[in-house]
């Protein structure tokens, strides 16, 4: 994608306008408050069971905050909180495909080349969970239970997001319904482009520290465009070739080492809770 192709928001490729929505998360700003997780659950109608609140293996999170430590003892101990949404991998080179998309036997997930968003079609998914096995980031979660909310909370569900039935896989959609809403608004105002501030994910808006920045990674007018180029920017498991669209920045070298390298290489000694 060459910068020269940009004309305002998005750029032309073939017949349609192509965006690559992505995130840059500043780990130095993240306090681990979990507001992004809460906002995500509320926005996307993620069900939860009281019994599972402490069970990270069966409770579903689209956005999950990891706590990582440099493993040092006082006074050298340092911790970092790492929010992890779906990476919306693009794949490139030898792996010119999203890891979870090509494995789905029923085309229940799709990489949208116009937005760069990896979708999940809940009514198409039949719950084989092959995509979960394919994702190295544990982004994809399965509905082990029928969706249930504490009494009265059903009244507060987001009407723009369909709740998922049991037995299907779900994951972060970069709040795709917000993009649809923004597109509708733009259309009603006779515009073709969606402005940066018109489409922001729930976690981005909820973060009190402003650690999350969201936008079109290919658009020089969007903040993420420059942020992803900063020297401290990195992506999770870059070496695998998944080509994620979520970038992290941290001024701390141990954090960069802990997150963007291959299994055990430099991250050994790093623990998480």
């Amino acid at each position: 994608m060459k910068d020269a192709h940009h004309k305002g928001e998005g750029h032309q490729e073939g017949h349609g306008t192509v965006y690559k929505y992505g995130m840059v998360i500043n780990l130095d700003k993240c306090t681990g408050c979990g507001a992004c997780m809460v906002a995500c659950m509320a926005e996307n109608n993620i069900p939860f069971r009281k019994e599972d609140t402490n069970d990270r293996l069966t409770q579903n999170f689209w956005m999950r905050v990891y706590k990582i430590s440099n493993g040092g003892s006082f006074p050298d101990n340092d911790i970092c909180y790492l929010p992890r949404p779906c990476m919306h991998c693009e794949g490139h080179g030898h792996h010119n495909r999203t890891p979870c998309v090509t494995v789905c036997p029923a085309v229940a997930t799709d990489y949208n080349h116009e937005t760069g968003i990896v979708s999940q079609i809940y009514t198409r998914c039949f719950g084989c969970r092959y995509c979960m096995a394919a994702c190295p980031y544990h982004v994809r979660v399965f509905n082990w239970w029928d969706p249930k909310w504490p009494e009265g909370m059903e009244e507060y569900l987001n009407p723009d997001v369909s709740p998922r039935m049991r037995g299907v896989v779900e994951k972060c959609s970069f709040c795709f319904h917000r993009l649809q809403r923004a597109r509708n608004k733009a259309y009603s105002e006779d515009r073709r482009e969606v402005h940066e501030d018109e489409y922001q994910t729930a976690c981005t808006q909820a973060c009190p520290a402003g650690a999350i920045t969201f936008g079109d990674l290919t658009n020089p007018e969007h903040k993420v465009y420059e942020l992803k180029k900063t020297p401290n920017a990195f992506r999770l498991l870059e070496v695998l070739g998944t080509n994620p669209k979520v970038y992290y920045t941290s001024s701390r070298a141990w954090v960069r080492k802990a997150a963007d390298v291959y299994v055990g290489k430099e991250g050994s000694g790093v623990t998480h809770t």
């Binding site: 090509t102 494995v103 789905c104 036997p105 029923a106 085309v107 229940a108 198409r124 998914c125 039949f126 719950g127 084989c128 969970r129 092959y130 399965f142 509905n143 039935m165 049991r166 037995g167 299907v168 896989v169």
Partner: peptide, 20 residues
């Protein structure tokens, strides 16, 4: 499979690139 009633999707909506 999580939704056994939809098991036939694998044949009807087949993704020929999937090993499964």
């Amino acid at each position: 499979i999580g939704q056994p009633i939809r098991g036939w999707f694998i044949f009807w909506h087949a993704n020929v690139h999937s090993m499964l």
